[in-house]
Design a protein around this nucleic acid. Structure first.
Lengths: 248, 248
DNA sequence: GCAAAAGTGTTGGAAATACACCCATGT
DNA sequence: ACATGGGTGTATTTCCAACACTTTTGC
């Protein structure tokens, strides 16, 4: 069964389902290679992850990550971008390889080694279409018992994100281009699952000096509106990080 | 041509060479998967990496990393351990996956996606045998122009190591079980390519409280002997790292 | 005027840095 | 005796954590 792509209102291309993959893998004499994407979003002050219903009987009713086989003439990174594009309609997204999972029995259809990619998208740029096998956003806290070894892939990617966001300015990919400091702090608190002091948080970000004051205010908030900022990626790119400091 | 394994004096198993791999890849209908190992050692106060002469004409005279195809019934991680075992005779080594390289044209024999693993070994435990295609230790500073895309794999792994060693106690895998603080500092200086203040370095490591004083002294040094320590891995394992601290 | 969040400074402690001298050993 | 690196302490600075009140807006 093929499924029409409908995200973003574009004309559909064909997305492989498990049955297609199973046929390909079983007819293969070697190792099949796939990509699985852990797609994070941020909405209602919660960190979310995009999951789809597994179409494999063995994992009936379980959720799984978005993945597909890598084409024989397709760069590994490009396969990840393709999956994102097919599922969300988004082109310019943050995407990074995290880890490759290659246990012999990780996939019931045969030998499939999968490269896990982590992606951060702004949910405002994206219209969810649940016709695609119940494609849905899930609170990360409620993600348990995924199909295949996807739970451990997810856990790895979530830990990776928690660490990564503290050392690199990834988080802004989850926010609107213009955001308030409160939104930024909510994001960090959601991802790191912690609470931070508001004054120290501001101090830290202002001291970095990568926030550009937009001279605009929040609208339609039921309280005093906050200033809006955007992140100065250019300035960040020019900065040299002094990274000497043993700490473990 | 097969090559006998001679490291460690063990009876040889067969190590695949490029010709073998090329045949396998060319006869494959899909994507071939390999592992490449970046094996670091520390000797004469220099960080070294283990390289072999490429047996591919196109890359004649170029050095390359140690790699092999992954078996159809072989876990990815196990493939990396196997390669290490075949080439160095060592079993219990530090080994970690770093990144997977999957550009379509990265390998001349066809579509080969490779998972790069980084390994740290104690050169004292290992007897080099140069009969294996000129297997040799190279100063990391002099590593340039490797075969295939191995230069970029190496660069990625070296940067990974530089970062990783500052946050995790990996470095001890490169040293003898008992080491002096001078050796430890030399190791850090070699890997990070920097100089550190001796007193502050000691302070930092003693403050961590993971070093066990062996009550032994260095022997045969042409100066005042230093105390020997070993790293308390058990105590480290029990420690919870408090990891909240945004910094980029 | 009340609820809700924005905005703002100071202080104390901890950690990092910079820095110089005496000690033990081999030659 | 001298050359080499081992071993130690202190003063300064920098960074981080803790903490409370006033302001602005919507309702």
């Amino acid at each position: 069964m093929d499924i029409k792509l409908s995200a973003n209102g574009k004309k559909a291309s064909t997305i492989k389902t498990f049955q297609t993959i199973q046929t390909e893998v079983e007819s293969s004499t070697g190792i099949a290679l796939s990509v699985d994407c852990v797609i994070f979003g941020f909405d209602e002050n919660k960190l979310k992850v995009l999951l789809i219903r597994s179409d494999l009987k063995k994992f009936q009713s379980k959720w799984s990550l978005l993945g597909d086989l890598v084409g024989i003439k397709e760069d590994l990174d490009n396969a990840a971008y393709r999956i994102l594009k097919e599922r969300t309609g988004l082109n310019d997204v943050y995407l990074e390889q995290v880890h490759t999972f290659g246990a012999v029995n990780r996939h019931p259809a045969g030998r499939v080694v999968t490269a896990a990619y982590c992606s951060l998208i702004n949910v405002q740029h994206y219209k969810l279409n649940i016709l695609d096998n119940e494609l849905h956003w899930h609170d990360v806290q409620s993600v348990t018992d995924l199909a295949f070894d996807h739970q451990s892939i997810f856990d790895t990617c979530y830990k990776w994100l928690q660490k990564r966001i503290q050392e690199h300015p990834l988080g802004f990919n989850l926010l609107p281009k213009k955001f308030s400091l409160r939104e930024l702090q909510n994001l960090y608190e959601a991802i790191l699952n912690t609470k931070m002091d508001r004054r120290n948080f501001r101090k830290k970000f202002f001291a970095m000096d990568f926030l550009i004051d937009m001279n605009e205010m929040e609208k339609d908030v039921p309280h005093r509106p906050g200033k809006l900022y955007k992140f100065n990626f250019d300035k960040y790119a020019k900065k040299k990080k002094k990274w000497i400091g043993i700490d473990f």
